[in-house]
């Protein structure tokens, strides 16, 4: 079977939806400048919005209320600060309040190193609000799974994508050892750093389990997540959104609560993501994860 990148998978999923389901794909500047990193197909059903953040999202929610299951593309997650209102205040509440539905697939693209309003990762913000399904797929298989879940459900889905994952063709497998020192749980882009981290730690005699987390909300504690932690009695959740009130801390709490073992969190510092290299406040890389694990084990 021919290898497909994540970008090609997104494009194909979208094409099928537009051509076969009568779906819509709505967003700003989506048919120019590389068609959103090659993820948007050139077919009927695309609605180019004017630069109307907020109204544009409302238009997508209105379309969702008519059963068109729109894909709403926001090229930089930071722009969700403007676009969030119709999703948070309407789409996510309409089922609980009125028994109606507004299923919209929100493709929110994260980036790295592009400055204060183009590098944000906002899935933690959306986890706070009721009514959303939230995931962060990083592989072709995960994306297809996310799409299937969206089509089977009637809630809005916040899909936290990352541009750096678009050329990925590999599935990311958990690595669980019979005997290990710590279990690393990865979310979003930092997941790609876990293998390298594990190698670095192994050189220092530290064995770690690697567990990948794609579904952020609802967050279901499964054996796949819990069993590795029971073997290590210690865990670390790594995410590329801000650590304070963020996904890493929230999920660390849930895992710790469910297992009774300490689970730490590693996310972004409480600082603006600036454009210049020393001030970027970038996603945890293998070096930072390595140092964090060493400190956790030393302190334990």
């Amino acid at each position: 079977m021919e290898e497909r990148t994540l970008a090609e998978t997104i494009k194909e999923v979208s094409r099928k939806h537009l051509e076969e389901n009568g779906g819509l794909l709505i967003g700003q500047c989506i048919t120019a400048l590389g068609w959103v990193n090659g993820t948007v197909p050139n077919v009927q059903g695309i609605v180019e919005l004017p630069m109307t953040d907020v109204a544009g999202a409302g238009i997508a929610v209105g379309a969702a209320m008519m059963g068109r299951r729109p894909i709403f593309v926001v090229r930089f997650q930071d722009f969700m600060m403007l676009n969030s209102s119709p999703f948070v205040n309407y789409a996510a509440k309409v089922k609980e309040l009125h028994g109606k539905t507004a299923p919209v697939f929100i493709r929110a693209l994260a980036s790295e190193g592009m400055g204060p309003v183009h590098s944000g990762v906002l899935h933690s913000v959306f986890m706070h609000f009721p009514g959303f399904i939230i995931c962060s797929p990083m592989t072709p298989g995960e994306y297809e799974e996310a799409w299937e879940v969206f089509m089977e459900n009637d809630r809005p889905m916040f899909v936290s994508e990352h541009r750096s994952s678009f050329q990925n063709t590999e599935e990311l497998e958990d690595k669980v050892h019979k005997k290990a020192d710590i279990t690393l749980y990865g979310i979003s882009y930092p997941r790609f750093a876990l293998e390298e981290t594990a190698k670095m730690l192994a050189e220092d005699g530290i064995v770690c389990n690697i567990v990948h987390i794609m579904w952020l909300k609802p967050f279901e504690i499964t054996d796949r997540l819990l069993e590795p932690l029971k073997r290590t009695n210690l865990g670390l959740v790594i995410d590329n959104s801000f650590e304070i009130c963020g996904a890493a801390r929230s999920i660390a709490y849930e895992l710790s609560d469910a297992s009774g073992y300490p689970v730490k969190a590693l996310g972004l510092l409480d600082k603006t993501k600036c454009l210049c290299k020393p001030y970027r406040n970038e996603a945890p890389d293998s070096k930072l994860i390595f140092e964090t694990v060493k400190k956790i084990i030393r302190d334990c």
Partner: peptide, 22 residues
């Protein structure tokens, strides 16, 4: 008749989107 959620004017883009889609 679709329900409002309390943010004034939120229904206008929703209605426009509904007209676009339907």
């Amino acid at each position: 008749m679709f329900g409002h959620h309390g943010l004034i004017g939120e229904n206008v883009p929703l209605g426009v989107g509904a007209a676009l889609a339907s």
